[in-house]
């Protein structure tokens, strides 16, 4: 069974929800969990919930990197849970890291301690998000990368992201030939400026991946592509927009229910459908975002992650370790040169 290091102190609801999530995993699976953080606080939380101690170890450290801290400054705090956890993975004590902590610090910590896959220049933060399913059996999630690790990219880096994303989708989503697309402001290949045009040209010429061309923003939630590639700035905005729309939709429904009795009655009739939609778009369902491009794996959870989101992220990390995702990515990169 893989060992997953979990930054117990990172996130808005840490350590409470992180520890609860790990406790859930310890009861339901054989995944070995290594909780990294203040042992006393972690143990206090553990003893208040159902857990299986046989699958939980604690790596004690005192320091925590705050969510709003400047990432480069935070790198100096060697005893912070995020850095101790990253080192534990780098030294082979764990196979992957899960954190809901400071995203910038997480990417810097990975860059500092994990070697990049040979041939890769920049890592990418990939996000799994729900999308419309076009045919029976299609995975209801797509992969969007990069969503924040590399703000501006060179064409070659976008090509690498495409290769890494395809490798991840092959292993995790079990799609034999995932459709890869470039997020752009038009479907024509000459749209979007020099970088995107050059990236499009290279991807079109590249063998080994199923490139389906450019997709626009409205295609994100349709089933046109399994892997959508973009710069970190654009990806982050797109991802937050998807999450925001989902949250606003459910908020609007509850506000409407308070306004009129007839609306309340109508919504009650639709309640199961709304709940289904909320479940589909709930980030807690798909855990976290893998940081791809390193020889070691890191799953970055949402800062607001609940216990369920943490539990799902740990399961995704274990699946990625079992399915040898970094090795798949290295092989894919080597294959395309």
């Amino acid at each position: 069974m893989p060992t997953i290091a979990i930054d117990a102190m990172g996130g808005d609801h840490a350590p409470e929800d992180v520890v609860k999530g790990v406790a859930q995993v310890s009861l339901a699976t054989d995944i070995e969990c290594l909780l990294v953080g203040d042992e006393r606080r972690i143990q206090e939380q553990l003893e208040g919930v159902s857990y299986n101690p046989e699958h939980i170890a604690i790596l004690h450290c005192r320091d925590v990197i705050g969510m709003a801290e400047e990432p480069r400054e935070a790198m100096r705090r060697r005893d912070a849970s995020l850095l101790v956890g990253t080192r534990a993975v780098a030294e082979g004590r764990a196979d992957a890291l899960v954190t809901a902590g400071n995203t910038g610090a997480c990417i810097l910590a990975c860059a500092k301690h994990f070697p990049l896959v040979r041939g890769i220049r920049r890592a990418a933060l990939a996000s799994v998000y729900p999308r419309h399913v076009e045919y029976a059996g299609q995975d209801r999630f797509a992969l969007l990368l990069d969503v924040g690790a590399t703000v501006r990219c060179e064409p070659e880096e976008l090509v690498h992201f495409a290769v890494m994303g395809a490798g991840y989708a092959r292993r995790i989503s079990k799609v034999a030939s995932p459709r890869v697309a470039l997020l752009n402001m038009g479907s024509e290949e000459n749209k979007g400026g020099e970088t995107l045009v050059a990236a499009h040209r290279r991807l079109r010429a590249l063998g080994g991946i199923n490139f389906v061309g450019n997709v626009e923003g409205n295609d994100l939630v349709r089933g046109r592509a399994d892997v959508i590639v973009c710069e970190g700035l654009v990806g982050n905005i797109a991802l937050k927009l998807i999450e925001g729309v989902s949250e606003v939709f459910t908020d609007l429904a509850s506000v409407a229910a308070e306004r009129r009795l007839t609306w309340r009655f109508g919504l009650r009739l639709l309640a199961r459908g709304i709940e289904r939609l909320r479940e589909l778009t709930d980030y807690a369902q798909y855990g976290g975002s893998p940081i791809l491009g390193f020889e070691r794996l890191c799953i970055k959870c949402h800062g607001r992650s609940t216990a369920q989101a943490v539990a799902n992220a740990v399961k995704v990390a274990a699946k990625a370790v079992r399915d040898r995702v970094p090795a798949e990515i290295a092989a894919a990169v080597a294959a395309v040169g």
């Binding site: 070995e32 042992e39 143990q43 003893e47 101690p53 046989e54 699958h55 939980i56 170890a57 604690i58």
Partner: peptide, 17 residues
């Protein structure tokens, strides 16, 4: 089906408690 690690963790849990 216990492993050395599961027993290690059980021992550590007793210390922590």
């Amino acid at each position: 089906g216990y492993t050395a690690r599961r027993l290690d963790n059980s021992l550590d849990d007793l210390v922590r408690r």
